[in-house]
Amino acid sequence: MSRSYKGDVSVEECWSVLQSDPQSFLVDVRTSAEWNFVGFPLVPENGRDAVFAEWQNYPSMSVDAGFVERVGAAVRAAGGSQESAIFFLCRSGARSMSSAAAMTAAGFSACHNVLDGFEGPPDPDGHRGNLAGWKAAGLPWRQK
């Protein structure tokens, strides 16, 4: 099946590239409420700061029409280009697919969706963050 972005990667693959390629970027597309109440990923010390840009505006959850322009400007301002590896992360991997596709359509050639996102799927008790994703993999993160 062909994708409208470069491809899907695991959280471990994303972390590995962020560590080895200081020109790569992590873009967290969740909402400000999620960053504030659930937590947010940290990037390797040698990497670029993560970009935090809502794909959908909270609480309406309408797609942000300025997303592509804002993320593109943030990447360029940090020294990146349309060829930079960019990894898109959301809660479980759906919004990040859409945002990676939108950035690819805007001419960014190395956009990746991070599978399982920050929290991954719910466990049998309905809790996220235990089965898969950034938190479950033990990657660095912080909660405000």
Rank of each mutant, 00 (worst) to 15 (best):
Y58I: 08
R48C: 07
F52S: 01
F25G: 04
L89E: 03
A102D: 05
G117M: 01
F118A: 01
W35R: 03
K135D: 10
N113M: 04
Y5M: 04
A50P: 15
A110W: 00
G39S: 09
V11F: 03
N113P: 11
V51R: 00
V17F: 00
W35I: 03
C111V: 00
S16W: 00
F88K: 08
A102M: 06
S32E: 15
L115Y: 03
A53C: 14
M61Q: 13
C90A: 02
E83R: 10
R128V: 06
G7S: 08
S92R: 12
V63M: 12
N36H: 11
W141S: 12
Q19K: 15
S62V: 15
V75T: 01
N46C: 05
W15N: 00
G7A: 06
Q23S: 14
V63T: 14
S60Q: 09
S4E: 13
S99V: 07
P44V: 06
I86C: 03
E12Y: 04
A53K: 04
C90R: 02
F37P: 01
Q23V: 08
A101D: 08
A106G: 07
G7K: 02
A85I: 02
P124K: 13
S109W: 01
N46E: 08
L131R: 12
N57G: 12
T104V: 00
F67K: 11
G79M: 11
K6V: 01
L18F: 02
Q56L: 12
R95Y: 07
A53Y: 03
L42F: 04
P140C: 10
A137R: 11
S10L: 02
Q23R: 14
K144N: 15
V11D: 06
F52A: 01
Q82P: 08
A102F: 05
D125C: 08
A65C: 13
W134H: 07
R128S: 01
A101G: 13
F88I: 04
